[in-house]
Design a protein around this nucleic acid. Structure first.
Lengths: 202, 202
DNA sequence: GTCTATACGCTGATAGAC
DNA sequence: GTCTATCAGCGTATAGAC
């Protein structure tokens, strides 16, 4: 007389579980963003989401697993903004994203803190940032190379060097901005660099 | 019949105490540089210097005090290099220091990690980096302004914007370099930026 | 000045009832 | 799935003998 659960009846709990996971990632995102990974505790995340710390571990078996989930959530956050204009210069895209970031300080803080904290010994997020930086360098190098092929890159500027510089400049500006929001204009300085490297179009 | 200590006899212990403090700061410098401030423990520092953790607290009453001492040690470390050439361009000075930094990865790692970690809530080193960044911006802005007065700054480049960009670029490059030492050339990219902004002298 | 002993809190993680 | 109870460990910091 034991009930054999039907596959149809299973659907509900699954959806609820997914919501729970998302809520936990949201809370962890906030906690790690203001306290760092080492500085943030599972207890604080659990309090924020309104559940016990052990229940949280039911969804993410270890703290490291939770960090990985937070890092991979990035894409969906960045996508929340207005739809990316179809026809857009690389420079326009960079400045638009930089302006968007300024309206989400928590996002910048999380990635700025973690990009440096992951340098510590045996940090679970170690590979994530190395891979991310390498990917960004490749993407922007391709964009600069394309500009070069159209004669719009300042002569003497190497595309891959410009790509590395752009990524570094961006991160460094956000770091200074977080320390002194009123004294650093990320978009303006980024724009001045792009104006310096990219020649005005025909 | 109690001995009244003479002032002359006191000299020895004082010098020994100063050595001890220096050894502790050296050890803390190493520990915070590889594990961060939150991630490093007083026990690990004490082990490295060969004393008990409580004895360490005799010299620095709290962990925060030790951090402050480590941060202020920076100047004496940078000075350890070869004597700064008397006649030196600002660009030459930047590239020389960047090259020197590459031979001291621990130094870069310490300041890269702490410059981001201090963004977390109520971090004891909070003001240090805000002040440091502001000071660097002012100093380099003055250098760029001086170049401008001699007609050696590219027209259209604002000295204070260039200063902010230089500091940001430098920090961002070191961050990428620490993540992937083989893929990023800090001195080369810094040099290409300075070549872009500074016109060749007469 | 240096130590042992220890207080005391918080950490991530486990066991097991419901 | 969620909880309480609990674990073992590490953290900073203090008290006090020597």
């Amino acid at each position: 007389m034991t009930n054999v659960p039907t596959q149809l009846g299973r659907r509900g709990p699954y959806a609820k579980s997914a919501e729970r996971r998302r809520a936990i990632i949201d809370a962890a995102y906030s906690v790690f963003g203001s306290r760092g990974y080492q500085g943030g505790s599972l207890q604080e995340v659990a309090n924020l989401v309104g559940m016990s710390q052990t229940s949280l571990l039911h969804y993410f078996p270890t703290k490291s697993h939770l960090l990985v989930a937070v890092l991979n959530r990035r894409d969906s956050v960045s996508r929340d903004g207005s739809p990316p204009p179809a026809e857009e210069t690389m420079a326009e895209s960079v400045l638009r994203q930089a302006a968007f970031n300024e309206t989400h300080p928590g996002l910048i803080e999380l990635y700025t803190i973690l990009s440096a904290e992951t340098l510590t010994n045996n940090h679970p997020g170690r590979e994530y940032f190395a891979d991310r930086f390498a990917g960004l360098r490749i993407d922007y190098a391709a964009s600069f190379a394309e500009l070069e092929s159209r004669g719009m890159l300042r002569p003497g500027v190497d595309p891959s060097v410009a790509a590395t510089a752009l990524v570094a400049l961006w991160d460094g500006l956000q770091l200074q901005w977080l320390h002194s929001p009123g004294e650093v204009d990320v978009v303006a300085v980024l724009g001045s660099y792009l104006d310096l490297v990219i020649l005005p179009g025909e």
